[in-house]
Design a binder for these strands. Structure first.
Lengths: 196, 196
DNA sequence: CGATTATATGGAATCAGATTCCGTTTAGCA
DNA sequence: TGCTAAACGGAATCTGATTCCATATAATCG
């Protein structure tokens, strides 16, 4: 009975129909989240995927599991984008551009922001993953820019990350351009020597 | 101690028991929201107030009505605080201090932030009220500081207001001090001459 | 290929919380 | 004190989330 660790990550071979359904659910959920937001009824997703709700729950026992599966790729891509920027831009420009890239991520994946800041304990794995992946990236960008003397060095990466993601979270009020401007404002703040 | 005005358009005087219950519900809700957040079950509030759910709904047909009633006083106080600051501080300091005052408001009234940014159409009256009240205040502070040459003048008041309130919204991650620092960062951004 | 078995499925049943409805109670008033 | 409109409480209803399990099926084996 040593079969605990076969939750995912491919150690266990999924049956073909299960794999197919899992993918259908993922596609349906991505579409529904973009349309109705993360709070969309589970039934809607199941119907669109052509499966029963029981099947949906078998694959994704918690709603955050579903969200996480959908955005993981996007988050990874965003993290990777920093590499390219670092290689081709001045440190402070790399920082500024990456943070705008972050705005795009949050603005595009409409579910991400709300799910991230919901405060619901059940959603914990999501912020854990996202911040765990992105904080080191931002931290590196900040250090590089600080080392080049373009910005001050007294700002905590995770703190800034959270603030930016909150500002970028779409809702009734506000749009992407607005979020961009406000994030740019924070970057300008970084350029300012520490004030008393 | 302004007398309770009629809550909706009617000019009808409330019966004594109704007024009493309305107040009890308000007190209970304020307490429950602070403890469990705005999503707390209606039943909990009704029980704590010692009334039936029907009575609660009679007084506050929509949850936002309840939230609005609770925070209205706080929002007004925050708006009024600007007057004092303007009279006693340099324009840019008045601006900075008022924005920190705003952080306190959002951080303290735990329900405010989430309700404000929920995007739920039923909650529309809340942002309408809050932004309607606070945007002119911030706009005035920004204009004064810009006129004194301390900050740039290309930032939209409502945009900045929304951004600050989002940053200040409490959740699992983050605390008041963190929100303060991030808002201070934005203010530093305002001090920076417009960059290309 | 057919039998066997562990997996996976669908949707009915159950549960939780929101909202409505209506028979009963009560404040206000003559 | 009696009358009436206002207000009350909570049962009934509705909506959507989550669980459960009898049925179906992919994979494996002889």
């Amino acid at each position: 009975m040593v079969e605990q660790q076969e939750k995912d990550s491919g150690i266990r071979p999924l049956r073909a129909d299960a794999r197919r359904n899992s993918e259908a659910i993922l596609n349906a959920a991505a579409e529904v989240f973009d349309t109705l937001g993360v709070e969309a009824p589970v039934k809607v997703i199941a119907d669109k995927a052509g499966v029963g709700v029981g099947t949906l729950y078998r694959h994704f026992p918690q709603r955050p599991d579903l969200i996480k599966a959908i955005i993981q790729k996007e988050v990874d891509a965003c993290a990777d984008a920093a590499m390219v920027l670092v290689a081709n831009e001045e440190p402070v420009d790399a920082l500024a551009k990456w943070m705008q890239r972050l705005v795009d991520l949050v603005a595009t994946k409409r579910g991400l922001g709300p799910a991230l800041h919901s405060g619901n304990a059940a959603y914990q794995s999501l912020p854990d993953y996202v911040f765990g992946r992105l904080t080191p990236v931002l931290s590196g960008l900040l250090d590089a820019a600080a080392a080049s003397g373009s910005i001050r060095s007294d700002v905590d990466a995770k703190e800034l990350l959270i603030a930016c993601m909150r500002v970028a979270t779409p809702a009734s009020e506000g749009d992407v351009a607005q979020a961009r401007r406000m994030v740019a404002l924070m970057i300008d703040g970084l350029r300012m020597p520490r004030n008393g």
